[in-house]
Amino acid sequence: MRRLVAAVLMLVVVSMVTFAIFFLVPRLAGATPEDLASRYAGRTADQQQIRELTEKLGFYDPLYVQYGRFAKGLVLGADYSTGPTTEHCPAPCFGYSFITHNPVWPDLVDRMQVTLSLALGAAVIWLVGGVAVGVLSALRRGTVFDRVAMATALAGVSLPIFFTGLLSLSVFSYTLHWFPPGGSFTPFTENPATWAYDLTLPWITLAFLYAAGYARLTRAGMLETMNEDFIRTARAKGLPERTVVVTHGLRATMTPVLTLFGLDLGLLLGGAVLTESTYSLPGIGKYAIDAVTNNDLPKVLGVTMLGACFIIVANLIVDVLYAVTDPRVRLG
């Protein structure tokens, strides 16, 4: 309960800081409300038109009133004019984009499925792949497998997504035509096979980057653990090697891996910016970049709060998982 309250407070603080960056900082730098509104007007707009727009966007109100309106929309929803009619934006209403005039929340929900698909699929690949390679490398330390695996891991950590992404698109999509071009996405509910096919390249590219780090982390952890006394004891008790490695060795190694995994996944769910941009996937990350580039505050607020939510939730889950992997930790 205490954690939940802390999480909500954290979200409030995050939204306030984002709000302040957008409105308070330019005001302190001398910008008037009209200056801010003129960002969203056509380039030939005159003073009267800009004043009207400023009024419509509510920029003349004191900052706390503007923030209060935003917070009220989140809890109770808000009404917006489309011109001929008035539309109700149900809670949680993050407002309407200053530029495209679309409500933000449906956009976020829509784009969430892309980011979720991308992040979860890649996470499965990198966790399974990275941990498996790490364990094998540790057990076969110094062999050709170990060296090749670690060299590949080093490449994976070093090569940025926009390099591996563009390269994979160029080779597998545009030259060999094995995979669809960038921007392809089919919702899981529409066709699971096409969903997986479309996302194969982004998954592998993203997983390659992360798996490398996990392989190295698992390998280091396993090397350390396998030299511990309790492993020797387990072996001395005559336990099969498989049980020694998986139940005793790997379990102890997984604690730091899971911590990292939780944070990585949380961050990714807030938007896999580079992967989504490289593959032109309409996910949260791409949405965030566009929002920031266009000074589109309602969108930026929405993305920031969603991202913060994911990180907070991921942290909670990791804490719970500690108890599962490490018997010394107990919930309570």
């Binding site: 969203y40 007007a41 056509g42 030939t44 707009a45 005159d46 038109q49 009207e52 727009l53 419509k56 004019s81 489309t82 011109g83 001929p84 530029i99």
Partner: peptide
Amino acid sequence: LDKKTFPSGPTYFGDVLDTQGYTSPY
């Protein structure tokens, strides 16, 4: 002409037409 609803478009018609205060069909 309704620049509250359509702020992004050009303003030339509003500038040259003798609108007599007309702002919007809405």
